[in-house]
Amino acid sequence: MSSGRGLPIVRNVILMSLKERIQAIDRRAVLRGMVNVIWAAPVALGLGQFLKFLRFEPPTEQATRFTLGSPGSFTTFPVYLESGQVWLFQDSGGYYAVDAICTHLGCTVYAQPDSSFQCRCHGSQFAADGRVLVGPATVPLRFLQLSWDGGRLVVDRALQVDPSVRLSA
């Protein structure tokens, strides 16, 4: 114990009363402390941001599943759901979702009264089962997998299904 150089000082500081401690702090020490804070704060802030930058990991994959909502919230079918960029249909077999992104250049296609689709950008037309009726598109529209999450419909834009597939109500 007696051999430790710093220990008596620590003991002294601990044993000092608050008044003694305040008296022990001279003006020079206060100013020095303030200066230290002034330069240390931005350095610490910058270091923190730098560490945050080094630890950043970009997202490796985009989300493909999108919650469309409860069927009861849709007043009419088909309905365009921007959250999943799909047209949601309902027939006697259940629900199905058609990709609303045109296979030509990616514009939004619009469902027609006869359940066919039309792209207003470049005039492509698709049949109700997604086949190309009029170009310039050459690839059919995709039908996408639907599933339930509680009472809500969820579409997975990464999973294509056959046009005949329905999700039971």
């Binding site: 020079r28 100013l31 020095r32 200066v35 002034i38 330069w39 802030l45």
Partner: peptide, 18 residues
Amino acid sequence: VGVPITLIIGTVALTGAL
């Protein structure tokens, strides 16, 4: 206060930049 003038100037400049 025993603080070099360069440290004060540097501190002010750093604070200004911040």
